[in-house]
């Protein structure tokens, strides 16, 4: 599902590479935590998977596409297969919960009857049934992140990436978001979560990939946040 082979990414201004000769493979349906200190290369790795960046060297394959070699016009196809949620939610403030979820379907050309059928089901799946008409500023942080997850999942991507999805949330709410991502993984979606949240990583015992200074230093099945556990 995801295969990175000897991937290096250097930014023009950086003295050392953001990612340094990383080789990793993630199978379909896996749930993977990407851990490491700030600046270790987690976000860069996710951006490479989304073709927000191109690797300086190496091959990135995602959902059957060679990310570095697909032409510009096919990048939207990649982004329909690989969705992403962020720490800052990135919701449209002038659209309701249902409107935010529908937006993702409308701009990717789904017909109106499909949008009308899918949106309530997805909103219900993320636990926001009854709040379809609320605006983002009427929701808690956890609820806003649920909307972001609903929007990302609405197009039924094969892979869901999450960049610090609980970074702005309290522990209880964070746990709820992780359970939601776990439920989406159970449906068959590959989930990759970049996080600093040691408690959740330790509690869920999924595969852990650790980066440090851009290099892959640990790849452990049913791992914990730190080596000590």
């Amino acid at each position: 599902m995801i295969r990175m082979t000897s991937v290096t990414k250097r930014y023009p201004a950086g003295a050392r590479p953001a990612l340094d000769d990383v080789t990793v493979e993630i199978a379909e349906g896996e749930f993977v935590f990407l851990v490491g200190p700030s600046g270790s290369g987690k976000s860069t790795l996710l951006r490479l998977l989304l073709r927000e960046e191109r690797p300086t060297a190496g091959v990135v394959e995602v959902a059957g596409l060679d990310v570095n070699r697909i032409p510009e016009r096919r990048v939207p196809l990649l982004r329909r297969r690989v969705a992403c949620v962020f720490q800052d939610f990135r919701l449209l403030p002038d659209r309701t919960v249902a409107g935010n979820v529908a937006f993702a379907l409308e701009v990717t050309g789904r017909p109106s009857p499909v949008v009308r059928a899918v949106v309530p089901a997805i909103v219900s799946l993320v636990g926001l049934a009854g709040k379809e008409g609320r605006y983002p500023d009427e929701l808690s942080g956890g609820e806003q992140q649920r909307v972001a997850v609903a929007r990302a999942f609405a197009g039924r991507p094969r892979i869901l990436l999450a960049d610090e999805p609980t970074g702005n949330l309290d522990p209880v709410t964070s746990s709820g978001i992780m359970k939601l991502l776990d439920a989406i993984n159970q449906i068959g979606t590959t989930v990759v979560v970049a996080t600093h949240n040691a408690t959740l990583v330790d509690a869920m015992r999924h595969r852990v990939i650790e980066l440090e200074h851009g290099a892959l230093v640990r790849d452990q099945l049913r791992g914990a946040y730190g080596l000590a556990l």
Binding site: R73, P76, R79, R80, R90, A104
Partner: peptide, 16 residues
């Protein structure tokens, strides 16, 4: 913000 989300969810250049 709107266009960033459109890119993110895979809207085509023409749609954006």
């Amino acid at each position: 913000r709107e266009t960033a989300i459109m890119r993110l969810v895979g809207a085509t250049n023409a749609t954006i």
